[in-house]
């Protein structure tokens, strides 16, 4: 038995991909947007990841140079179209109170600066950890007299994108202690839970196998510092919960709901695994 395990490992160590993979990632590239905004795509792992990974790596580094370049210029980044649309939304009054975001928050560049970098975040009034999406909907339902946006809807994703852009280049820095700790611990438990008929956890792919190919997919660390992300595969923005749902579904499991307490906890935990990486605003991935 032991010998067999060793030979299996040996076989793995000498493995060289013999199939030409078109999807060759440039792992040493530097992410500079518009020739001026330098983003941190590799950082020492935060203390809570000791024993798990040494370095945290943006998903940008796992993509092809073509995909990478799309994020290096805002005119090339297809996600920016949605940011522009959200800018219009920001100034448009909706709901029974006749208020726009701007009526209370003023210029998004000022009021939302740094917000994305620290969310999900403990909300004292609510007595729970809240995501940016939840805060957007709270504003809509409680202060604007408007309907809540669908949690992963296009309108929500682009508003998240606009808010995220105001933290571009800032390090992700979500709090995991104090009142948020309990939620964070739950998120960690979910991260390591092997769900579905395939019995796979987030960690199986994104901690134990990042850098490896699974069929044609080049596995990343599953970081969410780049979210919302413009995905070339469906030509629209994807939110963290939308992506989580897809991943859990792919383990042949019953997914958690988008906006559910479970996914809020998971979002906090996954965000904390990227503490130290830059918020990318709107990233581009395949």
């Amino acid at each position: 038995m032991k010998i067999k395990t060793l030979s299996a490992i040996a076989a793995m160590l000498v493995s060289t991909p013999f199939v030409a993979v078109a999807d060759e990632a440039d792992k040493d590239a530097n992410l500079v947007v518009n020739g001026e905004v330098e983003l941190v795509t590799r950082a020492p792992a935060p203390a809570h990841l000791e024993g798990a990974v040494d370095e945290v790596i943006s998903g940008w580094l796992f993509r092809t140079s073509e995909t990478q370049s799309l994020q290096m210029d805002d005119f090339d980044n297809p996600g920016m179209i949605f940011v522009d649309q959200a800018m219009d939304d920001w100034g448009t009054a909706v709901g029974s109170e006749g208020k726009s975001c701007a009526d209370c928050h003023g210029a998004v560049e000022d009021s939302m600066e740094g917000v994305r970098a620290v969310y999900p975040k403990w909300n004292e009034t609510a007595g729970e950890v809240r995501t940016v999406a939840q805060m957007i909907n709270e504003c809509r339902t409680d202060r604007m007299g408007a309907d809540a946006l669908g949690y992963t809807s296009a309108a929500m994703a682009r508003m998240e994108a606009l808010i995220s852009m105001q933290s571009r280049g800032m390090p992700v820095n979500v709090a995991i202690d104090g009142p948020a700790q309990e939620t964070w611990e739950w998120g960690k438990e979910l991260y390591y839970t092997r769900t579905g008929q395939l019995q796979m956890s987030c960690a199986n792919c994104h901690e134990d196998n990042y850098g490896n190919n699974i069929r044609a997919d080049h596995l990343s660390q599953g970081q969410i510092n780049g979210f919302p992300v413009y995905r070339l595969k469906n030509a629209k923005l994807t939110t963290p919960h939308g992506r989580f749902k897809g991943c859990v579904r792919d383990t042949r499991a019953e997914t958690y709901g988008t906006g559910s307490d479970a996914f809020v906890a998971l979002e906090l935990y996954v965000a904390s695994r990227g503490n130290g990486l830059s918020v990318e605003g709107v990233s581009v991935r395949n």
Binding site: G196, Q197, Q199, K245, D250, R252, A253, E254
Partner: peptide
């Protein structure tokens, strides 16, 4: 995966439907 296991899963799904 255990290709012949049929029960005892956490959050068993209906194929890839979620």
């Amino acid at each position: 995966p255990n290709f012949y296991q049929v029960e005892g899963f956490i959050r068993p799904g209906d194929g890839f439907t979620g």
